[in-house]
Design a binder for these strands. Structure first.
Ligand SMILES: [Zn+2]
Ligand SMILES: [Zn+2]
Ligand SMILES: [Zn+2]
Ligand SMILES: [Zn+2]
Lengths: 169, 169
DNA sequence: TTATTAATGTTATATTATAACGTATCATTT
DNA sequence: AAATGATACGTTATAATATAACATTAATAA
């Protein structure tokens, strides 16, 4: 099992998250002979500012501020599409939002644990779950191509707070 | 494991799917002392016309035709919200679409196998997968509240056709 | 340089969903 | 039956998310 859950839900040197992500991205771009432009890198950087998924129009606003010029939706969506293609980010459909992928190279399951309180989202690559999904598909004669798994609940931090307030009552 | 996969992907007496769904719905409504109105029942019926999820505006068009009068979006969304609340239908976020739930009473996992060819969606309630997700959440100190699992690929029928055309090449 | 491709700018519009407020319908009590 | 209160629906406007189409600019190749 591969996960960034601890990082997401605990204080950490987040600068390293960001720079690691950017390094991975640049490497992947040279490898695939595609261009990491200013717009694209900025969008990726913004998505890595926090461990919370951002919507396209949130990105638009922040990008506009960052680059100090007006940015129209297509620009944002183009950058998003590019990053999605390369597997550097994911779309979280139930939130209409996007988030950086912590392990863009490895096979993984697109399983997210999304906190309904603070909005953070941790990604988990879980081999056992993956192979169960595969075998469930096989049994149903369903040719599995891709998947999108979203778990909603309370992250470790918000769970604790919730217990605290529960106890106070 | 509970699934409507066979029904969805094989020829069957679909009238029974529809009437069973409507009966379940009416029972649930009396039980919960809420009203199954014409609009609501029509929407549910439309969602059960096929085993393919429908978008809100597709529903709007079909509802308008069925009731022979103009229907505005809020009317559709109200019916959808009502049916979602009762657990009679599900929203499939990655499609922005809605589909009838084949087993609205039982505990289940909201796992869908969605055919990218024909658009059909089968629902699967898989205890083992559910408990794995629960234990993965536990391990991460994540308080699981709800989930939404979408598998994309080819349904049995479309898989066969695909093989056929593959062989022709 | 020139041609070619790739990326971005710009305008308009499609698609999905909700807010706000008025009207009608249903159920309950008098 | 009439009055009341609650629920559902009608109507208009608008928010939020996403894409189409075409012009312009920037990077790469010939
Ligand atoms: Zn971090
Ligand atoms: Zn949280
Ligand atoms: Zn059926
Ligand atoms: Zn199919």
């Amino acid at each position: 099992m591969l996960t960034n859950s601890r990082l997401v839900h605990q204080p950490h040197d987040h600068g390293r998250c960001i720079s690691a992500a950017l390094t991975r991205a640049n490497d992947l771009c040279s490898e695939q002979k595609v261009r990491m432009t200013t717009t694209r890198e900025s969008v990726l950087r913004l998505l890595w500012q926090s461990h919370q998924p951002l919507g396209a129009y949130q990105l638009q606003g922040q990008l506009s501020e960052l680059l100090n010029k007006p940015i129209a939706p297509p620009t944002v969506y183009r950058a998003i599409d590019f990053l999605l293609q390369l597997g550097l980010i994911h779309r979280i459909p139930s939130l209409n939002a996007y988030i950086g992928c912590p392990f863009p190279n490895s096979e993984h399951s697109n399983l997210f644990m999304i906190c309904s309180q603070c909005g953070s989202a941790a990604e988990v690559a879980h081999n056992t779950i993956n192979s169960m999904l595969q075998s469930a598909s096989d049994k149903a004669n369903f040719t599995l191509q891709s998947q999108c798994l979203e778990l909603f609940g309370l992250c470790p931090q918000c769970s604790e707070h919730r217990e605290d307030t529960d106890n106070e009552q």
